[in-house]
Simulated assay, not measured.
Amino acid sequence: MTTRTLTRRAALATAAVTSALVLAACGGNSDDNGDGGTGHTGHGASAATATPSASASAATATPSASAGAHNAQDVAFAKGMIPHHQQALEMAELAADRASSAKVKDLAARIEKAQDPEIRTLTGWLKAWGEQPPAAGTDHSGHSGMSGMSGMMSEDDMAALKRATGKDFDTRFLSLMVEHHQGAVEMAATEKQRGRSADAKAMADAIITAQDAEIKEMKQLLGAK
C-alpha cells in the first residue's frame, strides 16, 4: 500500500507541474500576441524594430537641419564658389598636356582633387536649402555675370592660357592661379565673417588654409623660373 500511495502522489505532482507549465506558456503567448499585451518580449521587439527607424529619421533630418541653419550669405557663397571652382578645374585640366614642369602638373592635379568634391558638396547644400545651383558650363564664359567675380579669369586670359604650352604655359598658369586663389580666399573670408551655416563656414576656413598654402607654393615656383 505504501508503494502504491507514493507512486500515485508522484504522478499527481507531475501532472500539476505539467499543467503549470502549459498555463505559463499560454499566458506568455497572450502577452506577446494579444491586443493589449505589454509583456517584456513585446517591448523588446518594438525596441529592436525602432532602432533602424530612428537612425533613418536622424539621417533624413540632417539635411532639414542644415537647410534651416543658413542665411543669404551662405547661399551667395555656395552659388559663387561653384563657378569659381569650376574655372579652376578648367585651368587645372589644361596642365596635363600643356605644362612642362612636373611640379606644375602635380599642383594642378591636387587642385582638381580638392575642388571637384567641394563643388559637389556646395551643390548638395544649395539643393537642401531649396536653391537652384549654378548650371555647369564647359568654360567660364558660360557662368552668366561671373567674369567680374573676385579672381575669375577673363575670356582673353583663358584663351591665352589654352594657346600656351611648355614653360610659357607654366608661367601663365601659376600667375593666373595665384590671382584665382586670392579671389577664392577673399570670398571664403567673407563667408567666415557673415555666414551662418557651420558647415559652409568650415569649408570656407579649409579653403583659406589650403589655398593660402598653394599661393605660397606657386609664388615660390614663379620665383624659381
Rank of each mutant, 00 (worst) to 15 (best):
A200K: 08
A198C: 07
L89Q: 12
A202S: 15
E131C: 03
K167L: 10
A224M: 07
T190A: 13
P117T: 03
A58D: 11
S141G: 07
A99F: 00
A224Y: 06
E155C: 08
S46D: 13
L94F: 04
A96W: 05
T3S: 04
A69F: 07
M152F: 01
K167T: 13
M203A: 06
A13Y: 11
Q220N: 13
L161V: 06
G34C: 05
V185E: 01
W129H: 06
A65P: 02
P83I: 15
T123S: 05
T209N: 09
G223S: 09
A54G: 10
E191K: 02
L176V: 08
T209R: 08
E179G: 08
E217S: 02
T62Q: 14
T60Q: 10
A72R: 06
R163V: 04
A102Q: 05
A184M: 03
L12N: 08
T171D: 13
T18W: 04
A189C: 03
A95N: 05
A15S: 09
E214M: 05
G124L: 04
T38Q: 09
A198P: 03
A54T: 15
G124H: 08
M177G: 11
G36Q: 10
H84T: 03
A11G: 03
N33G: 04
A78T: 11
M152T: 07
S197M: 02
H84K: 06
F173E: 07
Q87C: 10
V178I: 06
Q86K: 12
A114I: 02
Q73V: 05
L161Q: 10
A200D: 12
T38R: 13
P83K: 15
T190M: 07
A206T: 12
G223C: 01
G148K: 04
E93A: 14
S101G: 04
R163E: 08
T49F: 02
A135H: 08
H70P: 03
L89P: 02
S197G: 10
R172S: 12
